[in-house]
């Protein structure tokens, strides 16, 4: 039974995290706005130099983007529009940026979510094997694979997987589109992000396996029951959850390369394209989105950690 005062402190803790999250998101979006304005100069210049707008049209676009106003006013307008979900319009296609992002979002979300699930499956398997069977060959192999996962560039695993699948499929005319289009890239992305998860679980589990209470349990004969594993794993769950929040951000940049190698549509390629074309509203919209997603995943991770480990709640 949870007492009333306990529940009260819990609510307070949650509220505090949420407020902090909003603060971070605001700071991150602000940083993105100013960093982008200083890094890319006049957003309309590239349009003008490509002949896609006459000087008069360019001036018109400047006005419609509000670029003639002082920077602080532009910033306030950007924030106000952002709150309403309005990210402006693309310089090249004059379409709503929110709509362009929404179109590409499902593809990236499918890739990122499948990638994350596979990362968790690989990460847990490798981490637990490495710690539990630490003195056996299989444990060492698991540790080595986990180390490799952090070290091989996504570009390289992607290319290798295409080469291998290409070789296997030669002669067999199959058009299993989705296997190539979703599962394979997700596998590549998941493998790359499983390394850090495996490492955290490996070290956390190794430590708790050495703790007196586990040693005692083992001595009592519960040698390698799943119950024991469950108990020993629990302390590593909180760091794993914070890590997943970080991974969510990694997935965003990981998709840039994965989508390129596998010719998949999505936000990663939209981003590269917008940066190279100088389509400033799209870049800014995506960077703001990345910052907000990052903050949300951190807040959610914090809250989950609070739920899992009541000690942290009391520490508030």
């Amino acid at each position: 039974m949870v007492s009333k005062s306990h529940r009260h402190t819990a609510t307070l803790a949650v509220a505090r995290r949420l407020l902090e999250g909003i603060g971070t998101a605001w700071a991150a979006v602000t940083f993105a706005f100013f960093a982008l304005r200083f890094a890319s100069g006049d957003p309309v210049a590239s349009l003008l130099s490509q002949g896609l707008a006459s000087p008069e049209q360019a001036e018109e676009i400047r006005i419609s983007l509000g670029l003639n106003a002082p920077l602080w006013l532009q910033y306030l307008r950007f924030l106000a529009n952002l709150l309403q979900g309005d990210l402006g319009t693309s310089l090249y296609t004059h379409r709503s940026v929110s709509q362009i992002i929404l179109e590409q979002f499902p593809s990236t979300a499918a890739l990122a979510v499948s990638g994350l699930i596979l990362a968790l499956i690989f990460g847990f398997t490798l981490g637990i094997t490495a710690a539990w069977l630490r003195k056996r060959t299989s444990g060492m192999i698991a540790a080595a694979i986990a180390a490799l996962a952090t070290s091989i560039p996504v570009a390289f695993t992607g290319i290798l997987s295409l080469l291998i699948v290409g070789r296997l499929q030669q002669g067999h005319v199959t058009s299993n589109d989705l296997f190539i289009r979703l599962f394979l890239p997700a596998l590549v992305l998941g493998f790359a992000s499983s390394g850090p998860i495996a490492r955290v679980i490996h070290s956390g589990l190794s430590e708790s396996l050495r703790s007196p209470f586990i040693l005692a349990a083992r001595a009592r004969g519960i040698h390698r029951g799943s119950r024991l594993l469950g108990h020993a794993l629990r302390p590593s769950l909180a760091p794993v959850i914070s890590l997943i929040a970080l991974e969510a951000a990694f997935l965003f940049s990981g998709t840039v390369v994965t989508e390129t190698v596998f010719s998949r549509p999505g936000l990663g390629r939209l981003l590269v394209k917008s940066i190279l074309d100088g389509d400033y509203p799209i870049t800014l919209g995506l960077v703001a989105l990345a910052a907000i997603l990052y903050t949300i995943s951190h807040v959610v991770a914090d809250l989950l950690t609070l739920m899992i480990d009541p000690r942290l709640r009391r520490a508030e």
Binding site: T24, A25, A28, L36, S253, L271, V287, A290, A291
Partner: peptide
């Protein structure tokens, strides 16, 4: 605070923006 805000943008993305600039 500045560091935390900057961390919300993946480092690679930041690097790509700089290359573009």
């Amino acid at each position: 605070a500045l560091t935390n805000a900057a961390l919300a943008i993946p480092g690679l993305l930041l690097a790509m923006l700089l290359v573009a600039g």
